[in-house]
Nucleic acid binder design. Structure first.
Lengths: 127, 127
DNA sequence: AATCTTAATGCTACTTAGTTGCATTAAGAT
DNA sequence: ATCTTAATGCAACTAAGTAGCATTAAGATT
């Protein structure tokens, strides 16, 4: 079920993602909005925003789901929006990287999509 | 704490990974051995086998931790064993792929390791 | 602008992944 | 055979994520 109503809670979440290109974990989002909305609501809004192509998600190193702005579709018809993500081991910040992920060919296999996570130190923590 | 004793339970898990190159989720492993050992024991043995470099792990699409044979170290000194993993959307099987992951350079960032998961249909499910 | 429909929310209770503490067991060294 | 302590089992816990259901509020309709 995609987004069909711009509720106050949806606006709050959209505003947050309007301000940052970072990939934010659900746990953090639930915490950020703990006084504003129920955690179930956070989960449901994120689901709908992802179905609508407004956000995309991936699992980070620890298996935590993270959401970030934009689409990540791989329809054969559509343009490939697949890109890499970065996760800082020190401060935990995660970002989308403008690195397109090439999809390799493997005999007898069909590859539909992929996830690529680079792990290390971000500019802030490295210097 | 690495492996120091070859207990019956450790042997059972080593035997299983001796037979397959697949990456198996902890949930499946707990289920496979539910009559043979406690789930806490499964978790602890997997931890130790990973620390010993006998197994390596990664998070799959759903954030589930999976384990497979072999090392995945990236010490600057050691040889880079980083490789891609594959996950079949249909049957759920997961394998290590002999695709080395190139580590890109990003200005001001330091990349230590990476995870690359290809998702699609395996040879069995595709044909 | 009052009414109506139903998408969306809040709340409670639940499921499942993963962890911790502690008493007991059993590798394997002495 | 004995001893040390790594490893296990068990129970109780934490945390991520989901489901059911009554209530609320977008926003369409009149």
């Amino acid at each position: 079920m995609a987004i069909s109503r711009k509720t106050k809670t949806v606006k709050m979440i959209l505003d947050l993602f309007g301000e940052t290109n970072n990939a934010i974990s659900i746990v953090d989002l639930v915490s950020i909005f703990r006084n504003k909305m129920n955690k179930t609501t956070v989960y449901r809004i994120l689901n709908r925003l992802e179905e609508s192509g407004i956000l995309h998600s991936f699992s980070d190193k620890d298996g935590l789901k993270r959401y970030a702005k934009g689409n990540q579709k791989t329809d054969p018809d559509n343009k490939n929006d697949l890109h890499s993500h970065f996760l800082c081991d020190d401060c935990g910040v995660s970002t989308c990287l403008p690195l397109e992920i090439p999809i390799p060919t493997i005999p007898d296999y069909k590859i539909n999509t992929s996830q690529h996570l680079l792990i290390g130190q971000c500019d802030n923590c490295h210097n």
